[in-house]
Design a protein around this nucleic acid. Structure first.
Lengths: 104, 104
DNA sequence: GCAACAGATAAGTAAATGCTTATCTGTCAA
DNA sequence: TTGACAGATAAGCATTTACTTATCTGTTGC
């Protein structure tokens, strides 16, 4: 997937909120839309952008579609950040903690 | 700084290229512009967007301005990614290597 | 079988974006 | 002192974006 697509997809607060909701587990479009105050077609359009950027995957079951985060989708973002490791804040506690979690 | 501002700033390939050039060390606007095929005011506008997003810092000396990456500027991006650690690819070799480098 | 449901697409609109040229501002070498 | 330099801003334009309403498509519960 394209770095521009990923950054652009995440530049919109509504789409970041959709991503955040998906961290809690897969959701359908109706669930994702709850409490957002935008129309159903708007949600559909945002979902299309996230899918186009490779950030989410869909699984269709009849008239229901379940969306979930595509783990591979964030790789380009991680890759991009690796180019800036020399500039990371001196105390990157979060990252250390993260990696330890992953090694367990 | 605002997550939207950061993602939006990085959504443009020209601005990501400017960031990449700054990983090699501080540069002025003329140096950053070399070989890009866009006008000088365009570069000035892109630099303003990066500065507005907190990604770069400037240091003025007479009519020269030297730009460099603001290490703190990437923190929100790292913070944002930590929310997705559960979804990282199973083999995140890069991140492990990165952290080892930082501990040295 | 069909009305309801879930979700996608089309078309339109206002705002934002990324570029341009023209011009401006501050600095400085000659 | 001044013209050149480095960089910023203004204004305009074409394109893109994020939303809307209207409508469409496929599925399904009754």
């Amino acid at each position: 997937m394209n770095d521009s697509d990923i950054f652009r997809a995440l530049a919109d607060p509504t789409r970041r909120l959709l991503m955040e909701r998906l961290t809690a587990g897969e959701r359908n479009a109706t669930e994702l839309r709850e409490g957002l105050g935008v129309s159903q077609p708007a949600i559909s359009q945002h979902i299309a952008v996230l899918r186009g950027a490779g950030l989410i995957k869909e699984e269709r079951a009849g008239r229901h579609v379940r969306y979930r985060i595509d783990p591979e989708g964030l790789r380009p973002l991680v890759d991009w950040l690796t180019g800036y490791r020399a500039f990371w804040p001196a105390r990157v506690e979060k990252l250390k903690t993260l990696l330890k979690e992953m090694d367990q």
